[in-house]
Nucleic acid binder design. Structure first.
Lengths: 133, 133
DNA sequence: TGATCATATGAACATATTTTCAATCGATTC
DNA sequence: GAATCGATTGAAAATATGTTCATATGATCA
């Protein structure tokens, strides 16, 4: 039976705070990925959460490009592009290939393209964005 | 023929900046989703890019919960949880249901769960995170 | 070797985000 | 209708993030 008061017989989770559904909380705690894993996942999604980075990824999803090309394509200064590419490279979602003076960037693997597709699919299914009240 | 100088015969894209691969730039411009669409998509991913919000989503992916439960579960103050829930609700990825004094939150649809799964799958496939140099 | 091109890096600045505290709103109960 | 409980809102403070400018690196070519 699910108690509806704020006392939890196990006491480990609810501490001194009120807690309306202790059983639900225990269930979620048991099934939810651990904190560290979710923190990693948040960091991963964060990469896609910036317009500049996302446009870089979308562009690299179509063709291998050099830093200069990306700067022109996104109408951004080269250092700005380079900074973001460094972030993406460290996160291992793009790879760099040097050819003389020019460095070519590309998506690391097909998986990244898949993530982009899933997101775009979500937008496509949305009725229309707006207030949720 | 692909010119390697910084002049683009169409002139619209490369402006005055140097531009190494005009043909590639034109190709990407033609195939890439438009700016506004990518900005929307970035906003969508941004929701998943914060540990607090992601944990809220992960929890709601398992059970419907009230604000108070989430506060306990994430060890956070109620207003902090409430603020993030508002963001998620406005983005239409969670829904709220009031029952007396208590407001229950849940994922809006199955699609959100799918997005979470895809992300976790990516982490699973990763060799190990670290420097990309 | 010196000049030049493409890229990378560092520090500073500007901007966003998130959390907190305090106060308010809504609904129930006495 | 006053008190209480859960949830929301607003403003302020603390952090984090992204872009810019100036400069350094690495590679090519004269």
């Amino acid at each position: 039976m699910v108690e509806t008061t704020h006392s939890d017989e196990r006491g480990a989770i609810c501490l001194s705070q009120p807690c309306i559904h202790p059983a639900a909380i225990r269930a979620v705690n048991a099934a939810m990925p651990e904190f560290g894993r979710l923190a990693e996942l948040a960091d991963f999604y964060k990469l896609f959460g910036d317009p500049t980075r996302l446009r870089i990824l979308a562009a690299l999803g179509i063709a291998e490009l050099c830093v200069c090309d990306l700067g022109v394509l996104l109408a951004m200064k080269q250092p700005a592009v380079s900074h973001q590419l460094r972030v993406l490279k460290q996160a291992r979602i793009v790879r760099a290939r040097r050819e003389g003076k020019v460095v070519y960037y590309a998506l690391k693997d097909e998986h990244i393209r898949h993530v982009l597709r899933v997101g775009l699919a979500h937008l496509g299914e949305q009725p229309e964005a707006g207030e949720g009240g």
